[in-house]
């Protein structure tokens, strides 16, 4: 059974006097453990697709089956609950809470979803994930004290804290330089490989899409092509091949050596 099955999804909304048809009968299956990259120009409907997939928005018509359950008609609170439990979000602009430590940022989803985890367990989970993304020495840093790549890694840790089935990444490397982008893609590839997480990544850069297992092209609210990636890029190998940085710009030079 596919983790996600979208059947004839349509979404239209009104902007002033104009009705915009963002999705026009889009169908798509996403298998568990796959790394699907959705590419499309702006206005292609990929953001709307992302919002519907992330249960932030409801389709006008059509069906969205998540783990076999039709969630397209769920009300706000049920969608909030599903988002909390099954979906992790990674955004282009990180969306971390300012003036809040990395640890507390990662713990945030644990505050919701009607589950009262004891603080000690919340800390332990968040700490474990931050260590897994290589930020074990920066638990108490606020976003202002972290570089862009580090912030995105905090965001990934946050997305994983509730052990979701699905990780939705919306242009996760859009604000990052190419080296940091490779680092982020390495983490995502590792998550798919080691944890069996399903990743749906939205991008407009075709070379980023080549890190996935499958590229889905969206145009005018429909899937126009859906192909497996032939020569898949391996982010870990690419990063290893990059020349070492002579000067790593760190907000706090004293701790620069602790990062690995």
């Amino acid at each position: 059974m596919a983790l996600i099955r979208l059947v004839d999804l349509r979404k239209s909304y009104r902007v002033g006097d104009v009705t915009v048809h963002a999705l026009r009968g889009l169908s798509l299956d996403v298998e568990r453990g796959s790394f699907v990259c959705v590419v499309g120009a702006s206005g292609s409907g990929k953001s709307t697709l992302m919002n519907v997939l992330g249960l932030l928005d409801r389709p006008t018509s059509g069906h969205y089956y998540l783990e076999g359950e039709d969630v397209s008609g769920f009300d706000k609170d049920r969608r909030a609950h599903l988002r909390n439990r099954k979906i992790g979000f990674v955004f282009q602009n990180f969306n971390l809470l300012p003036r809040t430590s990395a640890l507390e940022n990662v713990e945030l989803p644990l505050l919701y979803g009607g589950r009262a985890l004891p603080p000690a367990e919340r800390h332990a989970r968040a700490r474990g994930l931050l260590e897994a993304v290589g930020l074990g020495s920066r638990l108490d840093h606020t976003p202002q004290q972290l570089s862009g790549g580090q912030q995105q890694r905090v965001a990934i840790a946050r997305a994983l804290v509730n052990e979701p089935e699905l990780l939705l990444a919306d242009e996760p490397t859009g604000n990052l330089d190419s080296r940091t982008s490779v680092e982020i893609m390495e983490i995502l590839q590792r998550l798919v490989r080691e944890r069996g997480i399903t990743v749906v990544l939205i991008t407009h850069e075709h070379d980023i899409a080549e890190y996935g297992t499958r590229v889905v092209t969206v145009r005018d609210g429909r899937v126009t092509s859906d192909t497996p990636v032939q020569n898949r890029r391996d982010a870990a190998a690419e990063r290893a091949a990059l020349p070492p940085l002579e000067l790593e710009v760190e907000p706090e030079p004293a701790e620069a050596g602790a990062e690995a």
Partner: peptide, 16 residues
């Protein structure tokens, strides 16, 4: 606003 959006995205309900 962005913080509120984020909280909603990670599972906060309106009443939260």
């Amino acid at each position: 606003t962005r913080e509120i959006g984020l909280r909603l995205a990670v599972g906060a309900r309106s009443r939260d």
